[in-house]
């Protein structure tokens, strides 16, 4: 970094997800790497804009010196290329790292995000098995969002309303399209919204366990993280289905970002090198553009997505043959 920074040393973790873009700062001198700052932003289809907004919030405080950067989430490559991240890691590893950091005895992690749901099984602090939703986004946060909006319930109140139900209705959980049909039928029979919401939570949990947990032993300690863990109705439905307590960690909504920051720290300690980070001021002020086009070189017609920073080519994705993108050189 060009500026003589005297800020507090921190590691930056970024999770660019489909629904939210999360940034966290972990204390770089504290051996426990405690979380000192976090931000949960809605991605709203524009990951680069969300990312820049988050970074400008960090820059405004003017008290942090970034030692290293890690990115994760479905937009991890994009964010990593834009910022010069020290490590770009998949969400499973990031979530497992963060959960183990907050409780080394964790054996089961349930993570439900915007378009993914994951189940991670650990033994003695090592990931031994995992499962992700198969081919569609059924049973994830986006669906809860959509249903809450349809029923006119703010998503923040969803959980408490579901908890107030005394008689949850039964709703088909196999597919969210079926679930919606079922919900509408029950609603038209005059059943109350809290009962429908509680029934929906139970159906989603059933769907999750049937799809991801079959044949797996879910031992305590069970963690529930990801944006959907904010929903107390979902937490209770998991507890009822698993017949054991489910823990929602303090920073459940940004666990992916915490994991990315921890992995960045680990990586830099291993290599004992300097961060490749582009710099906070520079990242906030740079002009990043995204260009998407259909390659016409062969009948595959791959959708190529390129990222440019201040007029210079950074990286591209989407090419199946691997020949497009490298043409720009470095």
């Amino acid at each position: 970094m060009r500026l003589a920074s005297k800020g507090r040393p921190v590691y930056l973790g970024i999770d660019v997800g489909s629904v939210s873009t999360n940034l966290v700062l972990l204390d770089g001198e504290d051996s426990r790497s405690s979380l000192v700052w976090k931000k949960y932003l809605r991605t709203q289809g524009a990951p680069l804009a969300a990312l820049k907004k988050g970074l400008s919030l960090i820059a405004e405080e003017g008290m942090w010196e970034i030692r290293g950067v890690g990115t994760t989430g479905s937009g991890r490559e994009l964010a990593g290329a834009m910022l010069g991240a020290d490590i770009v890691k998949n969400e499973i590893t990031a979530h497992a790292t963060a959960a183990l950091h907050s409780d080394p005895t964790v054996s089961t992690i349930v993570e439900i995000g915007g378009q993914d749901s994951k189940l991670i099984v650990l033994r003695d602090g090592v990931v031994v098995d995992f499962a992700m939703n198969t081919v569609c986004a059924a049973g994830t946060g986006s669906f809860l969002d959509q249903q809450a909006a349809r029923l006119g319930v703010p998503i923040e109140n969803f959980g408490d309303l579901a908890l107030s139900s005394s008689n949850p209705v039964r709703i088909a959980g196999r597919c969210t399209v079926f679930a919606e049909t079922d919900m509408i039928h029950k609603q038209q029979l005059g059943m109350g919204i809290p009962d429908i919401l509680a029934g929906l939570c139970a159906a989603m949990v059933r769907n999750f366990l049937n799809n991801l947990a079959s044949g797996k032993e879910l031992r305590p300690t069970v963690f529930f993280q990801g944006g959907v863990a904010a929903n107390a109705g979902m937490k209770r439905a998991f507890e009822l289905a698993l017949n054991q307590p489910v823990h929602v960690p303090d920073h459940y909504d940004v666990m992916g970002a915490v994991g990315a920051a921890l992995l960045a720290k680990e990586e830099l300690e291993k290599s004992s090198g300097e961060t490749r980070f582009f710099g906070l001021e520079q990242a906030v002020n740079c002009d990043v553009t995204n260009r998407t086009y259909e390659c016409r070189r062969c009948p595959n017609n791959c959708e190529i997505s390129e990222i440019w920073r201040d007029g210079a080519f950074l990286a591209s994705w989407g090419s199946r043959c691997g020949q497009v993108g490298t043409q720009h050189g470095s």
Binding site: N90, E91, V127
Partner: peptide, 18 residues
Amino acid sequence: PVGLVTRLEAFCDLLERK
């Protein structure tokens, strides 16, 4: 290919750590 890549990377991480 994002979904596929995430699963493969996580699987290889898991095998390596194991």
